[in-house]
Design a binder for these strands. Structure first.
Lengths: 363, 363
DNA sequence: TGGCAGGGTCGAATCGATTCGATCCACACG
DNA sequence: CGTGTGGATCGAATCGATTCGACCCTGCCA
């Protein structure tokens, strides 16, 4: 009787497995495994023979699924996008962080699995992928607060998690920036230029994502951590905005809408602090549209430090955050978590960049 | 002696497995499996008991790795980004297609794994993820020609593949649009407006990604399929461009550079056909910068039909392609391939949208 | 009352690799 | 010449589920 492994080998049709290759090379499965992984002593001639057999059979290397089960690791990092994908992807801030993350994870042989969170407030469930996809670590971008069902699901599944720009939570890694002091700096810059009537354009306050002026009651309510911190930064600089406009997302058009609303009234502010560059660039465009000169008639400041080629020669005054490094920092936390480290958190510095969109307050 | 499965259950510390749950619920592993998958007859009471035991033990559902190995399916679709991620992500064209794809795949319980192709012309190797990540199907966006090592690797691994905007190849699925006739239409539109001096701003010709004017020799050489088709569209309309400018990527700033170069010379064209909207918007910005009126002094047309909020009230004349549907079409091809269908290809229609950036040729 | 149908459960094989411990052999050293 | 050493190889257990076929028992029908 033939040895058992010849069975599948002779049947053909099926994709070859390591056992088939081993049989063809006349070695044991364990030796064949060693020939591919290189983890253990193996004679050069044997390795060669195994590789030849593999080539002969059209064997393209060990099946990742078998390897993953055995190792107990999938090599996959789930990235939960806490916003509609189409929106998140239109924002260079998200994509640059993602780019930095992918760049760091790639060399570690870790893949990035996109997990769109159906952040639909009505829908009760959680994304099926979040619920059941294989991943060794999860990264939550733009993740909600401590009550977010996302985080609860991940905790239940026992998946180590890193939060980007969320709040600090026990047992969860976090990467953020010092946005509060960043906003404080840019606000002080405007105060020093003599501005007193300063308005503010905010990121969404919460998952309702309303658009329009907001007052005390809303500001006192539940507000996403990132938005809150950037609001607090203005207070730190001793400024109470003359108006606060909420946008439903960080996009140019929402900034433009905000700009039209804020700048067309009678008591228009002399400066606008925006919580993102995309929003700020929209405000600049709206100002130009209204025939206002920037910065002579109105100063505009942003946050992020991304490229805005459509502003032409103007350079936005903004708070620059290291986006790619942020992604890399997330990657490093992920690496450490996989190595068994305790969840850590890391805060990156920001710097004020004074451009051409802010100037002395008009007299 | 206790039945074998109590072993791990009593040792604790380890994560519980289906066997632990089965033991705790007093049923066999197979029954416990049925209780979770619902594939097979099972008494409601039994299911209930199993789920209770699972809750008790903190078992969060079947381990995906075990399931995947058994099923021989990973539930993962690898998306190979044929360009630097940071660049691809800055282009709404890619991200909208990706959005449509993810939206279609999600409900099918398929996840999207991002695979950055290190398209470095010098680097000899292929991305390790491409080489060894688990995936049931691969989608190649912006994939190169038939000689691309990407495709060769996928073929060798036996992974069914769908190509987006590539060329038709045997054994490989493909989704594209009728861009050749789209460009023809928009070119004819300009001809009808009386333009004779028409310039062209192209996408990269090949992986060299040069920037600047190009002449006959380069145009006759090896050119990426998509760029070639869009060049041919102009010829179909009977137009030979007075100048052709190659850009290294579809980004606003490269369009602006092209615009400055094309529009500042003495014999400037009266119209510019751009192979993407991002490029076209850059040309419009450059024209404004140079004090030229659009469309009175120069007409500008694009391709894609994406939103360009920074153009203000201007609406770009362009060829609109259904980006989200394109992603969905890819998703459907993927679904069909997984169901065992032969690789198919699908071409989506485009439509000319006449906006405010094209007008009669100046006399 | 006997037989048959079928719902419910179970045991065991299986997916494809990795890895631990044992074995074997050649060579060097005492 | 016996023995120790270590490189190379092998066998078998293992990762955690799914699924096929067998089995049991109940209830219905003849």
């Amino acid at each position: 009787m033939l040895p058992p492994w010849t069975r599948r080998y002779e049947l053909s049709t099926q994709r070859p497995t390591l056992a088939d290759v081993a049989a063809a090379a006349g070695v044991s499965v364990s030796t064949a495994s060693l020939a591919f992984s290189g983890a253990g002593p193996i004679a050069a001639a044997t390795r060669e023979r195994v590789h030849e057999a593999a080539a002969q059979l059209g064997y393209a290397g060990p099946n990742p699924l078998g390897r993953q089960l055995r190792r107990g690791r999938s090599g996959i990092v789930g990235v939960v996008i806490g916003d509609a994908l189409r929106r998140a992807f239109r924002d260079p801030v998200s994509t640059q962080v993602l780019d930095g993350l992918v760049g760091t994870l790639g060399p570690l042989d870790l893949g990035v699995l996109l997990i769109p969170s159906l952040s639909d407030p009505d829908s009760p469930g959680v994304d099926p992928l979040l619920e059941s996809a294989a991943m060794d670590v999860a990264v939550v971008m733009w993740g909600g607060g401590d009550d977010d069902p996302l985080l609860e699901t991940l905790r239940r599944r026992g998946i180590p998690t890193v939060l980007v720009e969320g709040q600090l939570l026990p047992g969860i890694g976090a990467v953020g920036i010092d946005d509060r002091s960043g906003i404080e700096q840019v606000t002080r810059h405007l105060v020093e230029l003599g501005h007193t009537r300063i308005a503010c354009v905010t990121l969404p306050l919460n998952r309702d994502r309303g658009e329009g002026f907001i007052g005390e009651p809303e500001l006192a309510g539940r507000v996403w951590a990132i938005t809150r911190r950037r609001l607090d930064g203005m207070a730190d600089a001793g400024v109470t905005p003359v108006a606060v406009w909420q946008t439903p997302a960080s996009l140019v058009e929402h900034g433009a809408t905000a700009g039209r609303a804020l700048l067309s009234g009678p008591d228009r502010p002399t400066a606008v602090v925006c919580q993102s560059d995309l929003l700020a660039s929209g405000v600049v465009l709206a100002a130009r549209e209204l025939g206002l000169r920037v910065p002579q008639d109105v100063s505009v400041a942003g946050f992020d430090g991304i490229e805005l080629p459509w502003l032409g020669t103007d350079v936005l005054t903004t708070v620059v955050q290291p986006l790619t490094e942020k992604g890399a920092a997330v990657g490093h936390l992920v690496r450490d978590l996989l190595a068994g480290a305790e969840p850590d958190h890391r805060e990156l510095p920001v710097t004020l960049r004074v451009g051409t969109t802010t100037g002395p307050a008009p007299s």
